[in-house]
C-alpha cells in the first residue's frame, strides 16, 4: 500500500514538474520570442512605409508577412503548450478556446455546452483535466474519422462531469495498438491522480464516449 502511494507521489511530482516547465516555455515563447518578433515587425513596417523603390518595398512587404506568420505560429505553439486562459479564466474558457484552435487545425467541429454554474478548480487539477480533454480531442483527430464532437460540461454542487462524444468509427478495446492503449491508460491514470475518474466506451460504427468526473469539494 505504502509502495503504491509512494509511486503515485513520484508520478504526481514528475507530472507537476513537467507542467511547470511547459508553462515556463510557453510563457517565454509568448512574452519573450513573440514580443521581440513583434518589435521586428513594427520596425520593418516602418522601413517599408518610408521606402519608395518598388522592388525593395515589395521585398520588405514579403518579409513582414513572413514575420507575421512566425508570430502567429509562436503564439499558437505557446497556446498549445499552455493556454493562458487555463490560468487566468479557468477550465471551461480554456477548453472553449482550445476547441476553436482544434477546429481550425483539424477541420473537426466542436459543439460545446455547459450546464449548471461553473465552479473554481485548483490549478493542478484544472491542468490535469484540460490535458485529458486535449488527449481525447487528439485521439479523435488521429483515429475517429469523425467530422464533429459533442462536449458537455455538467456542473453539480459536488462534481463536474465532462462528456466528450465523437460520431466516428469507434473501436474494440482488444484491437487497439500499443500507442492508442497507452494514451487511453494515461488519461485514466491522470484522472485518478486528481481524485476523479475516466470511463471510455466505444462501439464500432457508432463512435466513442469519454466521461470524466471530477469531485469539486476536494482540497
Amino acid at each position: 500500500m505504502d509502495l503504491q502511494k509512494s509511486k503515485q507521489q513520484i508520478s504526481s511530482y514528475i507530472i507537476d514538474t513537467q507542467e511547470e516547465e511547459i508553462k515556463r516555455i510557453a510563457h517565454e515563447l509568448h512574452e519573450g520570442v513573440g514580443q521581440n518578433l513583434y518589435s521586428i515587425l513594427t520596425g520593418l513596417q516602418f522601413v517599408e512605409s518610408g521606402t519608395k523603390e518598388p522592388q525593395m518595398k515589395n521585398y520588405l512587404h514579403e518579409m513582414t508577412i513572413l514575420i507575421e506568420k512566425t508570430i502567429q505560429e509562436i503564439r499558437l505553439l505557446s497556446v498549445e503548450l499552455h493556454p493562458p486562459a487555463l490560468t487566468t479564466l479557468g477550465l471551461l474558457p480554456a477548453v472553449k478556446s482550445y476547441s476553436k484552435l482544434y477546429t481550425s487545425t483539424f477541420g473537426i467541429l466542436v459543439d460545446l455546452e455547459s450546464f449548471g454554474v461553473e465552479k473554481p478548480i485548483p490549478e493542478k487539477r484544472r491542468i490535469a483535466v484540460f490535458r485529458v480533454c486535449q488527449e481525447a480531442f487528439m485521439n479523435i483527430a488521429k483515429y475517429a474519422d469523425s467530422s464533429n464532437i459533442k462536449v458537455n460540461f455538467i456542473w453539480k454542487e459536488e462534481e463536474l462531469t465532462i462528456t466528450i462524444r465523437d460520431f466516428g468509427s469507434g473501436f474494440e478495446p482488444e484491437s487497439l495498438n500499443l500507442q492508442h492503449t497507452s494514451g487511453l491508460s494515461a488519461m485514466k491514470e491522470r484522472m485518478l491522480h486528481t481524485g476523479g475518474r475516466c470511463t471510455i466506451s466505444s462501439k464500432i460504427g457508432e463512435g466513442t464516449l469519454i466521461e470524466l468526473s471530477l469531485p469539486l469539494n476536494v482540497e
Binding site: 506568420k69 502567429q72 505560429e73 477546429t103 481550425s104 487545425t105 477541420g107 473537426i108 467530422s147
Partner: peptide, 25 residues
C-alpha cells in the same frame, strides 16, 4: 494576412478541408 487555407479539393471524403487553416512550417 498570413493564413493559408485549402481552397479547393477533389476526391475529398468530407468538408474538413474547408475549415483547416494550414499551420506555417
Amino acid at each position: 494576412g498570413p493564413d493559408v487555407r485549402w481552397h479547393y479539393a477533389s476526391g475529398n471524403l468530407n468538408d474538413k478541408y474547408k475549415r483547416i487553416t494550414v499551420r506555417f512550417g
